[in-house]
Simulated scan of single mutants.
Amino acid sequence: MKSHEKILIATDFFADATHAVDYGYSLAKQLRANVILCTVVTVSAELPQADGIVWPMDESDILRKDSSD
């Protein structure tokens, strides 16, 4: 890979994903590639009308803080 290449690393911050992030970051350093870190959030959509689910506002703030950390 050349230095203008990118590696996308997706994480949900569970233990296995954290290991994958560490590996992806180490690989990117060796290849001198840029890293795009994508935070993945699972939203339960068991209802037929998923758009009817109300997401608590404080949850969004917590997710943003965790992503920044």
Rank of each mutant, 00 (worst) to 15 (best):
D16M: 01
A10K: 00
I7H: 04
A10M: 08
D66S: 04
T39W: 02
E59F: 07
S26Q: 15
Q30R: 14
S68G: 00
E46F: 13
Y25V: 10
L8A: 15
G24I: 03
S60W: 08
S3T: 08
V21C: 10
T39P: 09
P48H: 00
P56G: 09
V54M: 04
A10L: 08
Y23N: 06
N34L: 00
T42G: 10
T18L: 14
D58C: 02
V41E: 01
Q49E: 14
G24K: 05
G24T: 04
S44P: 02
P48L: 02
P48W: 04
D66N: 09
S68C: 01
V35D: 04
T39A: 07
V21E: 05
S3G: 05
L31H: 08
K6V: 15
K65W: 04
D51Y: 11
D12M: 02
W55C: 06
V54S: 10
G52F: 03
D22W: 00
K65G: 01
D51S: 14
A17N: 04
C38N: 11
Q49C: 02
L8D: 05
M1E: 03
P48R: 01
S60F: 09
D22M: 06
R32T: 01
D16L: 11
A50Y: 03
M57L: 13
E5W: 11
V41F: 10
A15T: 15
A17R: 01
V40N: 04
A33W: 03
D51C: 03
T42C: 03
I9V: 15
